[in-house]
Amino acid sequence: MTESSTRVAVVTGGSRGIGREAVSRLAADGMAVVVGYSANKDQAEEAVAAVTAGGGRAVAVQADVADENAVAAMFDTAEIRFGGVDVVAHAAGKMVLEPLVDFDLSVLDDLHRTNIRGTFVVAQQAARRLRTGGALIMLSTSMVKHAMPTYGPYAASKGAVDALTLILARELRGRDVTVNAVSPGPTATDLFFEGRDQATIERLAAQAPLERLGTPADIAAVVAFLAGAEGRWVNGQVIRANGGVV
């Protein structure tokens, strides 16, 4: 595949968790990848090294997703290094779980800055820059539907992601660009395990009929499907990849 024909992906939150797995999967599918990260430089560089060791091309770029100038520069890097942008997988996000009655509003502002403003900023650049045949895939959460206690602020921020996904897909009419969200259930990432005891982990794993946690690879497979040629007829959807959790 020549430089000009290589598809190019920008993956935010690409240094760990679902984002890291998406980097690996999209690179394995032949894409050049921009690994966006906020603070985990070493892990982002490890992701790049893994891609290049497998014969692929990747570069790590630090960007606060809520900073429009930093995000624009990340997309600039994709265009300068690899020739354009065909796929954006927006996996960057924060999760804080506490009852609403006790929730610190400064923490709420920080959560929404990343999960709502950050999603808007990344989606705005994607809408401006994705080439014909492109795909924007945003990461949401099945907790928007499940309404579990302590998830209120986080689920509210991801509800905004769902709404933006549905509307932007329709705003891009005529562009041949798809916009979808992937909505994982409990998934075995560092973010999921943080602050949870073993009993809670086992209870959440048992919710799905498959009786296990999802894996980052499970979610990255859905991202890859939506990013590829076989997913072109899926547009304006929120896909719950949660093992059957109702």
Rank of each mutant, 00 (worst) to 15 (best):
N69H: 15
G14D: 07
F75M: 09
V71A: 04
A72R: 00
I137E: 13
L204H: 02
G54Y: 10
G195C: 02
A217R: 12
T114K: 05
V23Y: 06
L108Y: 12
V234L: 04
N242R: 04
E21R: 11
L191A: 15
V246M: 15
A156H: 03
D162V: 08
R129F: 04
L111D: 04
G55F: 03
T2C: 07
V177S: 05
G159W: 14
R212I: 09
H112R: 01
P209L: 00
I239S: 08
A47V: 07
A127K: 10
A155F: 06
N69D: 14
N115I: 13
A241E: 12
A39Q: 09
A229V: 02
A126M: 08
V96E: 13
D197S: 15
T215P: 13
A163I: 02
Q237D: 05
A44V: 04
A60L: 10
R212T: 14
E68H: 12
P153I: 07
R57S: 15
V65H: 06
A224G: 10
Q43T: 06
A221W: 05
L213C: 13
F75T: 10
T189S: 08
T178A: 09
A220S: 14
G84A: 11
V87D: 07
V246G: 14
H112L: 09
Y151F: 14
A123H: 03
E68L: 09
G93Q: 03
G133N: 08
R16H: 08
A47K: 07
A32L: 03
V246D: 13
A199S: 15
M1L: 15
G174T: 13
I239N: 03
T6A: 11
R128V: 09
G231I: 03
L164G: 02
A28E: 15
L26G: 00
A229S: 12
V223M: 02
D109E: 15
D110T: 11
S5G: 10
H112N: 10
K158S: 04
V48G: 12
L210H: 14
G55W: 10
G228A: 03
T165C: 06
S24V: 12
R7Y: 00
M1S: 15
G55R: 03
F120H: 14
D197N: 15
P209F: 13
V51S: 01
A127L: 05
E230G: 09
L108E: 08
P186E: 03
A60G: 07
V121I: 12
R128W: 08
I201Q: 03
V96A: 09
A60R: 01
T141V: 08
M143H: 13
D190L: 10
P209C: 05
G55P: 07
D190K: 07
V48L: 10
A220L: 08
A44I: 03
Q207S: 15
A73K: 14
T2M: 14
G56R: 03
E171N: 13
I137G: 00
V161P: 03
M31L: 13
V85I: 09
I201W: 01
T178K: 05
R117Y: 05
A22T: 15
V71L: 13
L210D: 04
A70S: 05
A72G: 01
G195T: 01
T12R: 06
T119L: 00
P149A: 07
D29K: 06
D197I: 05
Q125S: 14
A163V: 09
